[in-house]
Amino acid sequence: LLPSFEIGAWTEDDVYCWVQQLVRKGDSSAEMSVYASLFKENNITGKRLLLLEEEDLKDMGIVSKGHIIHFKSAIEKLTHDYIN
């Protein structure tokens, strides 16, 4: 489970856990499981996660359009939940 809904306070480890949970919950393929490490390697914290754009995801090595859409949708939901 994630430490809190205060996404802005999430550490790199918290984001890593979130990506792992996202991959487990989704209908995503096994190749998506490597993405948790990509987020950690790129020092993505909660604040940075909320700022990620499609180009950032591509720069991190996420090239599948479907996977990018999956992440963007999940990040938008997080942003919405965080604001409300």
Results as ranks from 00 to 15, higher is better:
residue 1 L to P: 09
residue 1 L to T: 12
residue 1 L to N: 15
residue 1 L to E: 15
residue 1 L to I: 15
residue 2 L to C: 14
residue 2 L to N: 15
residue 2 L to F: 13
residue 2 L to S: 14
residue 2 L to A: 09
residue 3 P to I: 03
residue 3 P to Q: 12
residue 3 P to S: 15
residue 4 S to C: 08
residue 4 S to D: 13
residue 4 S to H: 14
residue 4 S to E: 13
residue 4 S to A: 09
residue 5 F to R: 14
residue 5 F to D: 15
residue 5 F to H: 15
residue 6 E to P: 09
residue 6 E to N: 11
residue 7 I to K: 01
residue 7 I to R: 02
residue 7 I to F: 02
residue 7 I to V: 14
residue 8 G to I: 07
residue 9 A to L: 13
residue 9 A to W: 07
residue 9 A to E: 15
residue 9 A to F: 06
residue 10 W to C: 00
residue 10 W to F: 04
residue 10 W to E: 02
residue 10 W to K: 00
residue 11 T to A: 02
residue 11 T to R: 00
residue 13 D to C: 00
residue 13 D to A: 04
residue 13 D to M: 02
residue 14 D to A: 02
residue 14 D to N: 01
residue 14 D to Y: 00
residue 14 D to P: 06
residue 15 V to G: 02
residue 15 V to L: 03
residue 15 V to Q: 02
residue 15 V to S: 03
residue 15 V to W: 03
residue 15 V to C: 00
residue 16 Y to S: 07
residue 16 Y to K: 09
residue 16 Y to F: 10
residue 16 Y to L: 07
residue 16 Y to W: 03
residue 17 C to V: 09
residue 17 C to M: 12
residue 17 C to L: 12
residue 18 W to T: 04
residue 18 W to H: 04
residue 18 W to G: 01
residue 18 W to L: 02
residue 18 W to C: 00
residue 18 W to R: 03
residue 19 V to R: 02
residue 19 V to F: 05
residue 20 Q to A: 06
residue 20 Q to T: 10
residue 21 Q to A: 09
residue 22 L to E: 15
residue 22 L to P: 03
residue 22 L to V: 09
residue 22 L to G: 06
residue 22 L to R: 01
residue 22 L to A: 10
residue 23 V to K: 14
residue 23 V to D: 14
residue 24 R to F: 14
residue 25 K to M: 08
residue 25 K to I: 08
residue 25 K to N: 12
residue 26 G to L: 14
residue 26 G to I: 15
residue 26 G to M: 11
residue 27 D to A: 13
residue 27 D to K: 14
residue 28 S to R: 11
residue 28 S to K: 12
residue 28 S to A: 12
residue 29 S to R: 09
residue 29 S to N: 10
residue 29 S to W: 12
residue 29 S to Q: 11
residue 30 A to Y: 10
residue 30 A to K: 15
residue 31 E to L: 01
residue 31 E to T: 07
residue 31 E to K: 07
residue 31 E to A: 05
residue 32 M to N: 05
residue 32 M to F: 12
residue 32 M to L: 14
residue 32 M to I: 10
residue 33 S to W: 08
residue 33 S to G: 11
residue 33 S to R: 07
residue 33 S to A: 12
residue 35 Y to L: 04
residue 35 Y to K: 08
residue 35 Y to V: 04
residue 36 A to C: 03
residue 36 A to W: 01
residue 36 A to R: 00
residue 36 A to M: 04
residue 37 S to R: 13
residue 38 L to V: 06
residue 38 L to R: 06
residue 38 L to G: 00
residue 39 F to C: 00
residue 40 K to A: 06
residue 40 K to H: 07
residue 40 K to C: 00
residue 41 E to Y: 04
residue 41 E to K: 13
residue 41 E to R: 11
residue 41 E to G: 04
residue 41 E to M: 05
residue 41 E to V: 07
residue 41 E to Q: 14
residue 41 E to D: 08
residue 41 E to I: 08
residue 43 N to G: 13
residue 43 N to E: 06
residue 43 N to V: 01
residue 44 I to C: 05
residue 44 I to Y: 03
residue 44 I to R: 00
residue 44 I to L: 00
residue 45 T to H: 00
residue 45 T to Y: 08
residue 45 T to A: 02
residue 46 G to M: 09
residue 46 G to P: 02
residue 46 G to F: 07
residue 47 K to T: 14
residue 48 R to W: 09
residue 48 R to M: 05
residue 48 R to L: 04
residue 48 R to D: 11
residue 48 R to Y: 00
residue 48 R to S: 05
residue 48 R to A: 07
residue 49 L to H: 01
residue 49 L to T: 01
residue 49 L to M: 06
residue 52 L to V: 05
residue 52 L to P: 05
residue 53 E to D: 15
residue 53 E to P: 04
residue 53 E to S: 10
residue 53 E to H: 04
residue 54 E to F: 05
residue 54 E to H: 06
residue 56 D to F: 04
residue 56 D to I: 00
residue 56 D to Y: 05
residue 57 L to R: 02
residue 57 L to A: 03
residue 58 K to V: 08
residue 58 K to F: 06
residue 59 D to Y: 05
residue 59 D to G: 08
residue 59 D to C: 08
residue 59 D to W: 07
residue 59 D to N: 12
residue 59 D to H: 09
residue 61 G to H: 05
residue 61 G to I: 03
residue 62 I to Y: 04
residue 63 V to A: 11
residue 64 S to F: 04
residue 64 S to K: 13
residue 64 S to V: 11
residue 64 S to L: 07
residue 64 S to H: 15
residue 65 K to C: 05
residue 65 K to F: 03
residue 65 K to T: 11
residue 66 G to A: 15
residue 66 G to E: 15
residue 66 G to D: 15
residue 67 H to G: 05
residue 67 H to Q: 05
residue 68 I to L: 11
residue 68 I to M: 05
residue 68 I to Q: 07
residue 69 I to L: 14
residue 69 I to F: 09
residue 70 H to I: 08
residue 71 F to T: 03
residue 71 F to W: 02
residue 71 F to R: 02
residue 72 K to W: 02
residue 72 K to N: 04
residue 72 K to I: 09
residue 72 K to M: 14
residue 73 S to A: 12
residue 73 S to P: 00
residue 73 S to I: 09
residue 73 S to M: 07
residue 74 A to C: 10
residue 74 A to M: 07
residue 74 A to K: 02
residue 74 A to S: 06
residue 74 A to N: 06
residue 75 I to G: 02
residue 75 I to E: 10
residue 75 I to Y: 03
residue 75 I to R: 07
residue 75 I to N: 01
residue 76 E to S: 10
residue 76 E to R: 12
residue 76 E to K: 15
residue 76 E to I: 04
residue 76 E to Y: 08
residue 77 K to T: 08
residue 77 K to H: 09
residue 77 K to I: 09
residue 77 K to M: 05
residue 77 K to P: 00
residue 77 K to S: 09
residue 78 L to Y: 04
residue 79 T to P: 04
residue 79 T to N: 14
residue 80 H to R: 13
residue 80 H to N: 13
residue 80 H to E: 12
residue 81 D to M: 08
residue 81 D to R: 10
residue 82 Y to I: 07
residue 82 Y to W: 08
residue 82 Y to S: 12
residue 82 Y to F: 05
residue 84 N to C: 11
residue 84 N to Y: 11
